[in-house]
Computed example of a mutant assay.
Amino acid sequence: MPHEISTPVSRRSFIQHTMIGAAGMGLGLTAMGQRERRKLGVALIGLGGYSTGQLGPALRETKFCELRGVVTGDAAKGRRWARDYGFPESSVYHYDTMAAIADNPEIDIVYSVTPPGLHLRDVLAGAVAGKHVICEKPMAVSVEECDQMIAACEAAGVQLSLGYRLHFHPYHQQVKTFAAEQAWGGPIKMSGGFGYRMGSAWEWRVDKALAGGGQLMNTGIYVIQSALMAKGEMMPVAVTAHEPPKTRPEYFNEVEETINFTLEWADGSRLEGTSSGVQGSNDFEAVAPDHRVRMAPAYSYDRLRMELDREPQPPLDGFFQQAAQMDAFAASLLNGQQTILPGAMGRRDMQIITAIYEASRTGKRVTLT
């Protein structure tokens, strides 16, 4: 039976959809705020570049949570954060003393912003302290670690959420809406890449023990997430992958430099993805019988651009992805609801990443369940 061809998404309809989507996100928050509630307190674990440049500033903009503590190995830096963000120096913790967060009633959520190899330590510490947890991507360095995190948070009765900021950007929400409404009209041909030329100085992203892998863990996960959003979070059935010869083997001596991968779904949908530490890319495209979506840039913190059915969509510059992400988690906690980014999602993504590495190592197609 032939499917009905939908009309292209116009600029006006996209604006209307964006406003409705934003209102929809806000309805739960507004309902939650009908009676006076205090903001939930967040403690950032790790004060590196992402905390400094993104999460800290986002927490100045959030409506339902605010920064009330930090965990750092640099006490002087921690005291500066306390002064800048207006929380007491007694809420500055060292990694060795963060168990004491359990005694701080002002902190409701801990956010692990350390390298992936340390996420297990942070999440377990948060769970033991009885605090809800946000874990930055990727969730861990193995599926087994994901299982430990999920079990610890379930045993402690706290929620575990992931730092997947793009789920809250209206462009990516449009992709999710097409999936939810089964509006693609058939299998989707997808392509995407995220990479940049890394410098020559050592950083944790080329240390396998800390990073768990190379750019697949760091940037490729965004491409995987885009495809999963387009497929309604449906697990692919198989992956293939390969690594081109390294151009900087002295620098990428523990992790991959570039990796190309293919995800396959049972209905014939496919993703051709890439991530790299030497080649620049920042794009995602999904082509199906009824709709075509292209985003470039697709994964940046701001100034994303989108075409729907070849029609440029209005810029949404200034949309604070991290503030929306953290507010959504706070709202779910205040409303007694489950996060839309649970630990099970991070575990699934680690399964896919593990399969990609196996396919690259063996040169064989790897099936997924």
Results as ranks from 00 to 15, higher is better:
S161K: 05
I107Y: 03
R12M: 13
D147Q: 10
S13F: 12
G78P: 01
A76K: 11
S112I: 02
I5D: 13
T177Q: 15
P297E: 13
G343Q: 08
G157S: 09
L334M: 10
Q174F: 15
A286G: 06
L118T: 11
Q225S: 15
Q279K: 15
I340E: 15
M350Y: 00
T97I: 06
E358N: 01
R121V: 04
M235Y: 02
E256M: 07
M350A: 00
P57H: 02
I101P: 04
H172I: 03
T30Q: 09
E307T: 07
C135V: 12
E243D: 11
D103G: 13
Q173D: 09
L341R: 03
H169I: 01
G69S: 06
I15P: 00
E154T: 04
H167F: 15
Q325C: 14
M198S: 12
S281G: 11
A155C: 01
Q159C: 10
T274V: 14
V255M: 07
G33H: 06
G343T: 06
D349W: 06
T97W: 09
F194S: 09
N253W: 08
H172F: 11
V366R: 01
A125H: 03
A298W: 04
A99F: 08
A129K: 02
R11M: 08
G163D: 08
P2G: 06
S90G: 12
R38H: 07
K176W: 11
M25L: 04
R79H: 14
L210S: 09
C153Q: 05
A230R: 09
S112R: 02
P115K: 02
Q313I: 08
R348Y: 01
A75S: 13
Y95C: 03
A211S: 14
E358G: 00
N218K: 09
G24V: 02
P187V: 10
A227N: 13
D122P: 05
H17L: 13
L120H: 08
Q34R: 15
Y299A: 05
